[in-house]
Amino acid sequence: MHRTRAMHIVCAGHINWDVRLHVDRLPTPGDEGLIERRHESGGGSAANVAVGLAELGEDAHLLGAAGDDERGSEATARLEEAGVEPHVRIAEAPTTVKYVLVNGAGEVALLGTDGANESFGADDLPAGTLDTAGALHLTGQRPETAAELARRAPADAVVSFDPGRRGADRAYDAVFEHVDVLLVNEKEAQTLDVDVPVTVTKLGAEGARWSGPAGVVESGGIDVGAVADTTGAGDAFAAGFLTVWLDEREPARALGVGNACGALAVGEEGPDANLSWERIESMLDR
């Protein structure tokens, strides 16, 4: 089902504090929505993927930054409790806060503060952290930091990159030169025109698509019934996909496990999907 020996995987990017506001509807300009409940937790794409990898048995490390404040301490504690080894730069700026509006269908809209999450630079990389890494997973962060980390990764390490919503707005050309696996959603795939060995397109409820040297492989979505919250579903997918891909290089199996992880995430409130191989296999049996 999966390897017995954990792989050393380094994730790099944002550590956030998420404030989720569950609303009756996502307001349009001039409109007003009603906040039905509020939930707070650690977040950030890199942090979410690292947590998912650790839950799946990998030796997950995280490179990022947080403020010297309660939110930063709690976000770091979340990582440690999941089994992630955090390498966190404590910045002068406060921990970045993301306000996530979630409607009854699980659709989201985001607002954010700048904060500390891009304070981590390549010079903050602890000695030896990347030396034995089998993989480096980069997420949306300062392009120069992502590019330098990719350059420092071992020659045989797999470099994956999920640039996120701002991928088309930032100068990531130097990063793409090192990328082995690009993870994007369907909208992002339409705005990015890059040449990388493998592109994985997340299609939400429709599943996912792998495009690589062997052609195109598709895996359908999994019916989850009621959706609680889509926050972090793409990150859960990435954790599941990478865990299998790094071990087996089998697109169909990797996509299926990724889809199962994403399906588990949308059934949970917040970004933590509470992944386990038992739950994944049960989801795949549907």
Rank of each mutant, 00 (worst) to 15 (best):
R166Y: 14
G204A: 08
R151N: 07
L138W: 03
V194N: 03
E85K: 02
F176T: 09
A168T: 09
A254D: 13
A233M: 12
E206K: 15
R37W: 15
G128T: 07
F161Y: 06
V257M: 07
R89Q: 11
A189N: 07
S119Q: 10
R170D: 02
A150N: 03
A153F: 12
N48M: 09
G106L: 09
V88Y: 05
S219K: 04
G221E: 09
P271A: 10
L21K: 06
D69H: 03
L26F: 06
V158D: 08
G121E: 15
D193G: 01
A46I: 15
R25M: 02
C11G: 01
V184E: 01
R166F: 15
A6P: 15
L130C: 12
A46K: 10
G57K: 07
G267S: 14
P271K: 13
E107H: 08
L79N: 08
V227L: 15
A208M: 09
G258D: 13
E269N: 00
D223L: 07
D162Q: 06
A6K: 05
T129W: 04
D235Q: 06
R209P: 01
I35G: 10
G134H: 10
V158E: 09
T231W: 03
A263K: 06
W277F: 12
V196Y: 02
A147S: 09
A205G: 06
R209V: 14
P154W: 12
L242Q: 07
P27M: 03
S45I: 14
S41K: 07
N259P: 13
L21Q: 12
W277R: 07
P143Y: 05
A208K: 04
D131L: 11
N274R: 14
D193Q: 09
S45L: 05
D193Y: 00
D235T: 08
G234A: 09
G167R: 01
A60I: 14
L183R: 05
V159G: 01
G30L: 03
T4S: 14
G67I: 02
D156W: 05
F241M: 09
V84D: 08
D114V: 05
D156H: 11
A135G: 05
A208T: 10
T76R: 08
G43Q: 10
C261R: 03
E188S: 00
P29H: 03
E118R: 12
G240F: 13
E118T: 07
D272K: 04
D114C: 00
A47L: 12
A174W: 04
A168N: 02
A66H: 06
A157R: 06
T230S: 15
S276A: 08
P143N: 00
E107K: 00
F237A: 08
H8E: 08
V198P: 01
V19T: 12
G212V: 07
G42V: 14
A189Y: 03
A60M: 11
T243V: 15
L62W: 11
A122V: 15
L264R: 12
G33N: 06
N16Q: 05
V227Q: 10
D69V: 02
E268L: 02
E148M: 12
H22P: 00
I9Y: 02
L79I: 14
D156S: 13
D229L: 10
